[in-house]
Design a protein around this nucleic acid. Structure first.
Lengths: 245, 245
DNA sequence: CGACGTGTTGATCTCTCTCAATTAGAGTGG
DNA sequence: CCACTCTAATTGAGAGAGATCAACACGTCG
């Protein structure tokens, strides 16, 4: 088990993340219990699990989801490097959603009371976590708007744009050569409240219009402007810097 | 303008809210800038507004929403007494959603850096706010599951149950005599991603089956068990105590 | 009393779902 | 090296849940 020291965390070098003091980093390091490597397609947290710790996604892709008894599944959002997992459940609560990996992933595992320790010992980090949590909610808000009020074409377009931008922000080249795209069409469907078949047809339609291309596990956007117009997405100054822990 | 002292806040007496120390309450009081009284149907925050302060809903009902350019509207969630408003936008950000009242409402207005002051001076409250924010996200998660994967009947049933439970928790009688229900069918439709007409037909269908009744601005549930089964809602230990600030 | 907001209902229409079948690629074992 | 199996993508056809269009009822209010 290779332990990455927080001080040398690859994520810290990205412009996306806030700088932190040595004390802050040392605190985070002291709370880190383990590093968990999972292959793609594996369960990190089961729906209803009661004892899930706090995680951070160090590398890879994953997603949060909920299901109905008969198996209908809704993906709540996709998780990329730097995202938090498990802030929701207070100690003792059942997880209200499951988490599954899309790719080989590495998670930092934190002890259960980390959230409290962080707040208590470094209020500035606590404040950032509140804000991060609120920001994650706003991602779900966006999806809810899509699923509730956009047509299939609009939904697919906006999802592609969102994922592209998030993934591009984690790359040095900013997505010039496309971004990794490990989702199957079933994941897209479950993320947008669509059926698999209709998702496929919609995707093909957009592709034939030259709006995007998915190939070899990578996503390339053809005409961002046209996609954004289709999705009714505002030019979008939303892409905020997200502090790491 | 009547200023309710936080120490005597009506909400504090409800079992729903956590106890707080005198220092905590004093701090909150010191950060409170104003009290805002709005009639029903009024805008508290415009979509895209950049300078919204932090609010707390002291009494009344409101909702958060987003719209597309052509006017399609999605209600993200309904706000009841005790809810926070505006944690999302960091200072300087544009509000990602609008907020409008459903009934005459009273808001506590807090200065912009309150969130930070709370974290800095009372980390325990900061921690609670993080958790509250995460909890609010889980409400949106629930709605997303509904809108993405439930049929119209299931959606309506689950919304009625959710609102009933939330409203009942704010009442002394726990909803035995029904709960206030200030939504129009258009609000329900916009909260569930349905059309107005179909919402009406679905509502009538459930009503004819004796599952609920809306009358004189109050909601009465006929058969909670049957409604929950219809909505595919789990018995639900979810109703957590929510700390007030 | 007319205008307006809200609720109700019937009649289409259509977007999306479901069912079914086919193709392609990756992996496995003989 | 080749059947065999599995998963993912693709496409057509028919069905259906929910949208849209249109009318009307009812209460409130200026």
């Amino acid at each position: 088990m290779i332990q990455t020291p927080c001080r040398q965390c690859r994520l810290r070098t990205l412009p996306l993340f806030l700088p932190h003091t040595a004390e802050e980093i040392a605190l985070v390091q002291s709370l880190k219990r383990d590093e968990l490597h999972l292959p793609g397609g594996h369960t990190l947290i089961d729906e209803g699990q009661t004892d899930a710790p706090l995680y951070t996604l160090l590398s890879g892709w994953a997603f949060r989801f909920k299901t109905l008894r008969d198996g209908r599944r809704q993906i709540l959002n996709f998780l990329l490097a730097g995202d938090f997992i498990g802030v929701q459940q207070k100690m003792g609560d059942a997880a209200a959603h499951g988490v599954v990996t899309l790719t080989d992933s590495v998670f930092c595992v934190f002890q259960r009371d980390s959230l409290w320790q962080l707040h208590r010992q470094q209020p500035a980090m606590g404040f950032n976590i509140t804000w991060l949590t609120a920001h994650e909610e706003s991602l779900v808000d966006d999806t809810l708007l899509s699923v509730g009020r956009r047509t299939a074409e609009e939904r697919v377009a906006s999802l592609l744009i969102m994922l592209f931008k998030r993934a591009a922000a984690l790359q040095a080249d900013g997505g010039a050569q496309g971004v990794p795209f490990p989702l199957t069409q079933q994941h897209i469907a479950d993320g947008l409240g669509l059926s698999l078949v209709h998702t496929n047809k919609t995707l093909r339609k957009l592709e034939r219009r030259g709006l995007h291309r998915i190939e070899g596990g990578r996503l390339y956007l053809g005409d961002l402007q046209r996609l954004e117009r289709l999705a009714d997405l505002y030019g979008d100054g939303r892409q905020q810097p997200r502090p790491l822990i």
